[in-house]
């Protein structure tokens, strides 16, 4: 037992080490992306009307006048102090700009993954159980179709139907600065539905596939032959063993959702991280782009790590 625990600790530590390496690489990639800008980023950011003195001042402020390697270590040092730099246009630290915009993005992501899971898992289980039937085939086609719909386009259609024509939901925004919690949630229904539907496809397909695998296993047959009810045989024996791939794909979907949220927030006028990034791109506010890219990717790496750790809880056979 102590041996197993030691092995597990080693495994967790090695995953932790791997995560740190990946995070360090993320930082490097982000650093490089902003530096591949042809020409002078400071001049690009300030636009054609800027004077040379302004440009020089911004270069100095951003540290762009230093040698590349010095810039890199300055950047690392800043990050270790939790400093993501200063937004040029918002006149605000990038970290606080991100924090201000975090709430809509957080709730949008959570609601969307809930919707995607609530649709995806049961539909996938039933499709696998009814393998080869008309229902199963319809599910497979519907999943593929929903994965082919651009989420922003679906969002526009939903606004048209449910907000403009039916008047059920607000057409855009987040209810203003003094909106109550319920009001804000109401603004998130349509964006979350459009993202949830589009992203349920992967969950449906993986749930179906991993259920198909385990439904053929001996222990499910044994459970049935013991006279266990179908529902219990499917849920207790099959579903429990199909959980690992399903949890993995839900985690993967969470990452895809963050990408979808960038576009969906813009469609619905939600003041989230995604719309912050889009406006930063249009204004060439590089520190904001850099910071957002880094934070989002780091969250993704963290989610992956947590999912890995979750395996141990779900499946006692996985011993790290």
């Amino acid at each position: 037992m102590t041996m197993a625990r030691g092995a597990m600790a080693r495994r967790v530590l090695s995953r932790l080490g791997g995560m740190i390496v990946v995070l360090a690489l993320l930082v490097t990639v982000v650093f490089v992306i902003v530096r591949v800008t042809p020409g002078d980023p400071a001049a690009v950011m300030l636009g054609p009307d800027a004077t040379q003195a302004d440009i020089d001042q911004l270069r100095a402020q951003l540290g762009l006048d230093q040698p590349m390697l010095v810039q890199y270590f300055l950047y690392l040092g800043q990050l270790l102090h939790g400093d993501l730099g200063q937004s040029i246009f918002l006149n605000q630290p990038v970290l606080s700009a991100l924090a201000d915009r975090a709430e809509p993005t957080f709730f949008l992501t959570i609601f969307s993954i809930l919707i995607a899971t609530i649709i995806g898992v049961p539909v996938g289980i039933i499709a696998a159980y009814k393998r080869g039937t008309l229902f199963d085939q319809a599910v497979v086609v519907a999943a593929m179709l929903s994965a082919s719909i651009p989420s922003f386009w679906l969002g526009l259609l939903l606004i048209q139907w449910f907000s403009v024509q039916m008047g059920w939901f607000p057409t855009s925004g987040y209810g203003g600065p003094y909106a109550g919690f319920f009001d804000r949630i109401q603004h998130l229904v349509l964006p979350a539905v459009s993202l949830g539907i589009v992203n349920s496809a992967l969950i449906v397909r993986f749930t179906r596939a991993s259920m198909l695998d385990v439904l053929q296993e001996d222990y499910v047959r044994t459970a049935r032959s013991k006279g266990m009810s179908e529902f219990r045989a499917v849920m207790r024996h099959a579903f429990k063993n199909a959980l690992i791939p399903i949890v993995t794909v839900i985690g993967l979907t969470l990452a895809l959702l963050i990408s979808g949220a960038v576009v969906t927030e813009t469609v619905f006028g939600l003041p989230g991280v995604g719309s912050l990034v889009v406006s930063a791109v249009l204004r060439r506010d590089y520190p904001v782009i850099q910071g957002a890219l880094l934070v989002v990717a780091a969250i993704y790496v963290l989610i992956n790590f947590l999912i890995d750790m979750l395996y141990v809880v779900i499946d006692p056979r996985v011993r790290y």
Partner: peptide, 20 residues
């Protein structure tokens, strides 16, 4: 691994922003 951690649209946006 590191590259795959970036959401696709977000990475593409940042690259386009940098490249023009």
């Amino acid at each position: 691994d590191a590259m795959m951690a970036f959401p696709d649209i977000l990475l593409a946006i940042s690259l386009v922003a940098a490249l023009g």
